[in-house]
Amino acid sequence: MAAIYSLFIINKSGGLIFYKDYGSAGRMDTNDSLRLASLWHSMHAISQQLSPTVGCNGIELLQADTFDLHCFQSLTGTKFFVVCEPGIQHMEGLLKVIYELYTDYVLKNPFYEMEMPIRCELFDLNLSQAIQKDRVSLFGR
């Protein structure tokens, strides 16, 4: 069974710009994924305002009975989040790796328009390699 269920990238205004699911659990259609992305965007923003701690950057981890949701927000407001099996530890690292791939293969691509859905062959290729490597290291332990 796959450790990661799905990966989302949303732009700073809450639009889904990248969605990929891995394995059969938690798969959803296009409308649902768009809805979930903008829902998460709003929840993230609200949590930032409601939080009792000063300088809170929003939700980083949401734990549920059947899944964990890890979120990473870049300085420009682009959010990366993965839905994965409960109790997996190293997701922050993976999100950073994905962010790095995004800055390399999406932002340095002259044919990518900012805030628009990501359709870059090299990004897909390197992303699947990173996920694959992550799985191998997970099973290796």
């Binding site: 293969y105 340095k108 044919f111």
Partner: peptide, 14 residues
């Protein structure tokens, strides 16, 4: 190195 050519640009090469 970082460039993916969109499908609609055909054989264009930077």
């Amino acid at each position: 190195r970082f460039i993916s050519i969109p499908k609609d640009m055909g054989t264009f090469n930077c």
